[in-house]
Amino acid sequence: MFDACPDLPPTPLQQSDEYRKALALTKTQTSALEDGTLVLRRKLAGVSVAMFPRAQLSLDTLAVLIRKPIKGGSLHKHLLVLNPDQPAPWLGKLGAVPVMTPQHIAELSLQGDLRAQLHQKWRNRLRFAEQQDLRITRQNMTLKPDQWLLQQNQAQQKERGYNGWPDALTLAYAKANPGCAKLFTAFSGKTPVAAMLFLRHGHSATYHISHSTALGRSLAAHNLLMWQGMCWLATKGALHLDLGVASTEGSAAGLARFKLGTGATMRPLGGTWLWWPPMRGMLRPLSLLDQNLMK
């Protein structure tokens, strides 16, 4: 089915129908614009807020679409939090104000010879892992909140001081989309030493969360899990794998090297913008002053 349309662009997880179904289970209020763009709605301090996660926005259509009636009412008087999937400096012309510079993500094509596109050092680590006594299992993620990967991921977030998806949303994704949350686990004997969770959506997939113990790292278990995940997703018709944010600076550089070693390429997202359409004329000068932040 997918062989007939190899040029389909990646579908961001946060704009997928599978993500919408997961949000519905968590009672998150959402709407969809006429072009299908998913919007999350909130009330913050009495202000109506509409969030556009990884949205594929267009200068020619955005201002028109937010005025059209949709579920929950049109958005032209809401405070809009815009996270474009691509650089969108044109938002400044509308009076949107940039508040966070763009991150870069790593994207991997799952078409062609996957082993050939691996970087040499990554391929060597994979070969090393394949020679170890590791047992790999693949299963649909269960709906138990106390499973090993979620517990280890919570501890890792606490230790490193960051927040990811709430576990409730991850479990809702698995429940709302049977078979689309695929868990790969590496065992040394009967002991889990690493695990990796992939979320399928449309003709794409996303590397969601993972964890490795010290023993798992010494055995290069993550390379083997990623490799088996890539190969399995390709056999299921996935064309692209979103490996998430890749920062080549500071403590995150090692993770970026791991992601890029698969043959993935980096590209910028569009940053975060705030836009309150009723104030567009007053905020436009401030927005234009901040344009360099978004380059």
Rank of each mutant, 00 (worst) to 15 (best):
G46N: 09
R280Y: 01
A194M: 08
S287D: 04
V39E: 04
Y19N: 02
M226I: 05
H222I: 02
P84M: 07
M51E: 15
P87W: 09
A220W: 08
G202A: 11
A253K: 11
Q132M: 14
T248I: 15
A176S: 03
T272H: 04
P192E: 10
K144Y: 02
A50L: 04
Q291R: 15
L75F: 06
P98S: 11
P53M: 10
P268H: 11
V49R: 04
L288F: 07
S204A: 10
S31K: 04
A155G: 03
W148M: 13
A116H: 13
G72K: 03
E249S: 12
L286F: 12
E18G: 01
L199E: 00
A252Q: 15
A63H: 09
N177G: 00
S212P: 07
A55D: 10
A246L: 11
P98C: 12
L199A: 07
Q86E: 14
L225M: 04
P89C: 09
W276Y: 15
P9H: 05
S74K: 09
K43M: 09
P69T: 03
T272V: 15
L114P: 07
N163Q: 14
G112E: 10
Q131R: 15
A22C: 02
K236S: 01
W165G: 06
G73A: 01
L171D: 05
G92Y: 04
F52I: 03
D35C: 02
H208T: 00
G92F: 05
A221F: 07
A174E: 05
T101A: 15
S74T: 05
L215V: 10
K144L: 07
T37K: 03
F128Q: 14
S212Q: 06
A168W: 02
K77N: 14
P84W: 11
A32L: 12
G237S: 10
D17C: 09
T101V: 13
A155H: 09
R125P: 02
Q14D: 09
A205I: 00
G229R: 00
H240S: 11
W276E: 04
L286M: 15
R200L: 06
T142K: 06
T30H: 07
P278V: 05
F128G: 01
L33D: 12
I136T: 06
T191C: 03
V49C: 09
A252F: 15
V193P: 01
A195L: 03
R125S: 14
A252Y: 14
R41S: 06
T37S: 11
L219E: 07
A214W: 02
L110F: 05
A24S: 08
A88E: 04
L225E: 01
A176F: 03
E249I: 12
Q56D: 15
G244S: 11
L44C: 04
A234F: 02
F184Y: 13
W148Q: 03
A253M: 10
T272A: 10
L79R: 08
G161K: 13
H211F: 15
I70S: 03
M226S: 07
Q131K: 15
I105S: 14
R160N: 11
L215N: 08
R125I: 04
R217W: 03
G270V: 08
